[in-house]
């Protein structure tokens, strides 16, 4: 069916007053007014100006006046408008300055929203950065990070970047009671939890919203160690690594495995054969000597960091 669309055109820089222009278009089943405007712009008059973005009634960009009422063009059916009004007329939002055609200046609208200070006034939070969600709320659940995760590729049970980042968002929220926070951290210590991540940075690279899921996982691990979950292999790795750097200035690979496995004979016997082969190849550094000049300065630096 071919319908007429009457659209208000106005370029304040050139025109003395707004004028109506009529476009004829073959309409199809399920067509929205936004679909029609896009087709007119693409096929009839490329100068027609209007705002649009999500096409799903979320962003609000395409609000305009359709048959005398303010509506979102993306969720306004051409057929229903025609049945209700017997025609389709489109204009810009009323009572706002027109920039061009259907696009208006929203500046006054936003300044009114800002004028009411539309946010909660929180009680002061304790500790620096206590309320940082590290951008996790920007996640749009696209799944790209999980699909790309190099650990998930071989370990399908791994909770993965998106879910762990989401967990961090609640761990970081000081409105959660301490007991719930502790339970949340406890539930993520086991196999498939936060300690499976290798920090390969793939999730950071592919995330389209800069959520940096890996950074959120690192913060979950830090929160775990601070909450006393310091006996998992991963936590022992971090603590042991820092201890060795504080002692030798550089990492001592001869002692690092012992820091992770602790006094566990079975695990020791598991790594022993590799250690012996490395020793024969001259790949085991001295467990007594530092490889750098002046390791005591690094020790002092890291000890200063631990002082409260």
């Amino acid at each position: 069916m071919r319908l007429a669309f009457t659209i208000q055109r106005y370029n304040p820089e050139l025109d003395s007053a707004p004028r109506d222009e009529t476009y004829h278009l073959d309409v199809t089943r399920g067509m929205t007014v936004l679909d029609a405007l896009i087709r007119i712009k693409n096929e009839v008059d490329g100068r027609l100006t209007f705002r649009h973005s999500c096409r799903s009634a979320i962003c609000g960009s395409c609000s305009m006046t359709i048959n005398g009422g303010e509506k979102l063009a993306c969720r306004t059916s051409v057929r229903k408008e025609w049945e209700r009004h017997g025609g389709i007329t489109v204009g810009p939002l009323r009572n706002l300055p027109v920039l061009k055609d259907l696009a208006v200046d929203m500046g006054s609208f936003w300044s009114k929203v800002r004028a009411v200070e539309p946010w909660l006034t929180p009680t002061p939070l304790e500790g620096e950065g206590a309320y940082q969600f590290h951008n996790v709320d920007a996640c749009i659940m696209c799944g790209a990070c999980v699909a790309a995760c190099t650990v998930h590729e071989v370990d399908k049970g791994f909770l993965g970047p998106a879910a762990l980042a989401k967990a961090y968002r609640f761990v970081a929220d000081t409105r959660e009671p301490e007991s719930a926070r502790t339970a949340r951290l406890a539930s993520l210590q086991g196999p498939t939890g936060m300690w499976d991540c290798t920090r390969c940075n793939v999730c950071v690279e592919v995330c389209p919203k800069d959520v940096q899921p890996m950074e959120a996982i690192i913060r979950l691990r830090r929160a775990s160690i601070e909450a006393g979950y310091d006996q998992t292999g991963g936590a022992r790795h971090i603590i042991g690594f820092r201890d060795l750097v504080a002692r030798f200035g550089r990492l001592n690979e001869a002692l690092m495995p012992l820091k992770v496995i602790g006094w566990n004979l079975r695990k020791f016997l598991h790594i022993l054969p590799l250690g012996l082969r490395m020793l024969l190849k001259g790949k085991v550094p001295s467990p007594w000597h530092s490889a750098m000049d002046g390791p005591e300065r690094v020790r002092a630096l890291l000890e200063r960091r631990r002082e409260p």
Binding site: R199, I218, I238, I239, R242, V245, M292, L302, R305
Partner: peptide, 17 residues
């Protein structure tokens, strides 16, 4: 006289350190 860079591991516990 340079130290370990931290290898991303030290930073997990102490980013500024």
């Amino acid at each position: 006289a340079s130290s370990c860079c931290g290898a991303g591991v030290v930073g997990e516990a102490d980013p500024d350190g």
